[in-house]
Design a protein around this nucleic acid. Structure first.
Lengths: 147, 147
DNA sequence: TAAAATTCATTCGTATACAAACGGATTTTG
DNA sequence: CAAAATCCGTTTGTATACGAATGAATTTTA
């Protein structure tokens, strides 16, 4: 007899890109980045994340900063380099561990972050605006489990 | 008297990167992409999305394909070019609208997609695995509102 | 129908993003 | 303590990602 139970090697349901979580995550990120760049022209969201983390944590080695902001060593290097060129960050060789380069906010970087902080909060709100307050809490809780 | 109501220009609560939805979305995407590349070595997630969409929709103009896969014209061009070089896609000038380049799966592309389809479904499941079935449904519904 | 607006694909420039490999510094371990 | 393992920052190469500008083709509109 024909079995209607789940297939072994092949699912009868076709693959629909639009319902795959990875694709929807990418589109949600795209929308957020679009909201961000609309509201903030001075920095990218990635660059802002670096300023925010340094403001929160103070001086960090370059690689540690990368870990805190979810960027690998090659990526954080480029981001830091560009921010140093713009005088938003300072770097200094660690005097005890000669491998490390310590990164910190410059006065300009600190001032820029202070100026953008409330806008950044508004961007978070705008990103979540399609959800009710209750839905936002549920969403953030579940999203947090997926990291 | 001192007012404890919400601030006008400044929120007393400090900005914590780790609780911003944009940052968590990025990390969730990173995790998904890591799961993907662990399971599928032949293609990137982006490239697979192109194959999937063409399998689903058939021939599309290059720009239309970009819209369906959430890539702008410049991005989809690079992705298509690389897949054409690998003989996974074919391109042909539209005979009626001379602006358009129509893109379709090659036999090799179709075969590769067929071979990877079940793995792709498993990747989606693995990405959502930290959530219960009920949570997954809630999460996808809310995430869908944020695109 | 002619001008204006739009669409299409392309190119250029900049910015993530990450794997892999490297040399130097530090820490761990046998 | 010396070898092994790890960590640090850097470089190279490839792949998205997108704004802006371009020229050619098509559609809209006045």
């Amino acid at each position: 007899m024909t079995n209607s139970s789940p297939d072994k090697d092949q699912d009868l349901k076709p693959y629909h890109l639009d319902s795959q979580v990875g694709f929807i995550l990418r589109r949600a990120s795209q929308r957020h980045l679009s909201i961000f760049s609309e509201a903030v022209t001075e920095l990218t969201a990635t660059q802002f994340a670096v300023l925010a983390k340094l403001c929160e944590r103070g001086t960090l080695s370059q690689n540690a900063l990368g870990r805190e902001t979810a960027m690998d060593a090659a990526t954080i290097k480029g981001v830091v380099d560009r921010l140093v060129i713009r005088n938003l960050l300072t770097t200094k060789r660690d005097q005890f561990d000669k491998r490390r380069t310590n990164v910190d906010l410059s006065p300009m970087g600190r001032a820029l972050f202070a100026r953008l902080e409330s806008q950044a909060k508004a961007i978070t709100e705008q990103t979540l605006a399609p959800l009710s307050t209750a839905e936002q809490a549920v969403f953030l809780e579940l999203l947090g489990k997926l990291v």
